[in-house]
Design a protein around this nucleic acid. Structure first.
Lengths: 186, 186
DNA sequence: GAGCGATGTCTTCGCATGATGACATAGATG
DNA sequence: CATCTATGTCATCATGCGAAGACATCGCTC
């Protein structure tokens, strides 16, 4: 039996994991383009050239990070207060996830763009659409995309540095205001 | 009297204007980082080194573009249907404006970030806040920022390539759906 | 029309990036 | 203990970027 201590000096699986985590954080914070492989390596405490070995390229690492967070954040159905709360709590702890960035700006790499688009639909748009269909709402697909885009705006806005009150607001307050005001009445 | 024909071979004011317009378009489409001064020069049909001469740097050109669009898009008060319609029509014609990008992602340049933040508040957040104050709503500042962030998400989402139906939707339909559904009921 | 400043063009610099391959060494295998 | 592969380190490349400066030429002023 070989030693499997987590602190082993050489451990491919561990290095891979550290890179993936660091990449997910940085892609979320700064977006794809402004994150360099050297940044990722530094945060992970791992040599950045290992990205090429374990993932192939920066773009493929991005795709891997996208898939890794698949089971991570549960957007599911935002119309249940608890789910919504979960989303905000998670965003507070993790910062903006890479997934949301693509809702708001196209990526330079077509491969990354398509992977992100697919993930966004599976995890955000599609659940919402199903809900609207269940309710018999008009244009459920459009509604779902609209809500997803708006939520992306709010979640990303909390970390953009452009909104002071939004950034500091308590998630509970935020949900209350969300429910009440957002373009609902006229 | 000197000739002031618009097609003069040498005309600093005209070159400046062409650069500013091209920059505004590209910053809106791709964001600050992914727009190069060479791209701007190409689209403007003007040598990119003139950016340094007329604006000082790429960053200062960004700030100038931000201020140039100040009187341009009239976000004003989104709760009047006509205003909202204007916003969408404008976004259709011009693509995402630089102003909205900052609502959703911090810029790398602090100077640009601060200028964009100020413009966003003057033109979007502050008018909304005043409306909420007038209505006697709770936490008017937070509400204003929330609505601004959500609108930024929707407007940018139309051009992100991530949402098909949202991108193709008729502005009229969009407004109708916006009024009706967005997180209003539960 | 001569002179000169404003305007435009071209080249180059220094730097950061993503990627690649050569090399070093840990640590399992026998 | 000797071998060999998986793992990690390092140097380097080509590319694209923002910026700066040298040079050319237009067109106003006198």
């Amino acid at each position: 039996m070989t030693g499997e201590a987590p602190g082993r000096r050489r451990d491919a699986a561990r290095s891979r994991e550290l890179l993936l985590t660091a990449a997910s954080e940085l892609f979320g914070e700064r977006g794809f383009d402004r994150t360099t492989i050297r940044d990722i390596g530094r945060r992970a405490g791992v040599d950045p050239t290992l990205i090429a070995r374990y993932f192939g390229s920066k773009t493929l690492l991005y795709v891997a990070a996208l898939q890794a967070e698949a089971g991570d954040v549960a957007f599911a159905d935002l119309y249940e207060d608890e789910r919504l709360r979960e989303v905000f709590d998670r965003a507070d702890r993790r910062g903006p996830v890479p997934l949301l960035q693509v809702a708001v700006q196209p990526l330079s790499e077509p491969a990354a763009q398509e992977a992100a688009r697919a993930a966004l639909h599976t995890r955000l748009v599609e659940p919402l659409r199903r809900r609207f269909v269940r309710e018999g709402a008009d244009r459920p697909g459009l509604r779902a995309e609209l809500v997803a885009a708006a939520m992306a705006g709010v979640l990303l806005g909390r970390h953009s540095g452009a909104f002071d009150e939004l950034a500091d607001a308590d998630p509970g307050d935020l949900i209350e205001v969300l429910r009440g005001t957002l373009l609902s009445e006229d």
